[in-house]
């Protein structure tokens, strides 16, 4: 068994070649240590000689290959997890809720009578909800980064890409509302209205539909993000210890 000091030396070698991520390091480091221990035992050489041999047998290219494959594996793993969690989130009650909210937004009769003041309140509420959805994951992510600052995880890096995607979708949904707010002749709305000869769907109805979609997507993304975070914590508890 090698000493803690020797272990640190192998640890630095791992860091040097980019496997500073704990999830990559935890398998590579043990492999290197086992190699060194085996060399010391079988060939009766000292640590320094075994370490030198290890560096020859395990060059940078080997690390790169392992890191690359780990990244691909994690991306696929989390993509699958996201898909499954999104599907689990949108169970029959939530699908009915989404459809119900969209139908309400489409045909709510009082909408036409609502004047600008109420309109602005709803916009403000939607904005605050979305802001929460955007800012809350960021705060949580910052916290998770602080937790694993000394032991970074490739999984966290991969997970943050998902958060960027969620923010882009939410911002796009909001932008579509904002554009509608400032540009009255938004062609997509006219296109939408052309399918609605009775002209039941107003600009305001359409805006509410986007608010509903933003809300449901935001809700789902927060739930999925938390599941991912929980999974990472369970897989690599030592990174958060």
């Amino acid at each position: 068994m090698i000493t803690d000091e020797q272990l640190l030396k192998i640890d630095s070698y791992c860091d040097e070649f980019g496997s500073q991520y704990l999830d990559v390091k935890e398998e590579v480091q043990d492999h290197l240590i086992s190699f060194v221990e085996n060399e010391i035992e079988e060939n009766v050489i000292d640590f320094e000689h075994a370490y030198k041999k290890m560096k020859e047998v395990f060059p940078k290219e080997e690390f790169n290959m392992i890191i690359k494959s780990k990244k691909i594996c994690l991306e696929k793993k989390y993509t699958k997890l996201i898909e499954n969690e999104f599907l689990t989130f949108f169970n029959p009650p939530k699908i009915f809720l989404t459809i119900g909210l969209i139908l309400t937004a489409c045909f709510f009769p009082l909408i036409k009578t609502i004047i600008h003041k109420d309109f602005q309140v709803i916009i403000l509420i939607a904005f605050l909800i979305t802001l929460y959805v955007i800012i809350y994951p960021r705060l949580k992510r910052l916290q998770s980064f602080n937790d694993s600052k000394k032991k970074p995880l490739l999984s966290v890096k991969v997970k943050s890409r998902y958060e960027i995607f969620v923010r882009i979708v939410i911002i796009l949904l909001h932008l579509s509302n904002t554009i509608r707010f400032f540009i009255s002749d938004f062609s997509a709305i006219y296109l939408f209205k052309s399918f609605n000869p009775e002209n039941k769907l107003t600009y305001f109805n359409l805006m509410l539909i986007l608010v509903v979609l933003t809300f449901m997507f935001g809700w789902a993304s927060v739930v999925v993000r938390d599941k991912m975070y929980e999974k990472i914590r369970n897989d690599y508890p030592s990174a958060f210890a």
């Binding site: 080997e62 290959m65 691909i72």
Partner: peptide, 15 residues
């Protein structure tokens, strides 16, 4: 077996 072959394969099998 080289490490550069072993771990990518294990990652693939895990995925």
């Amino acid at each position: 077996i080289t490490e550069g072959a072993l771990y990518p394969l294990l990652h693939k099998l895990e995925e």
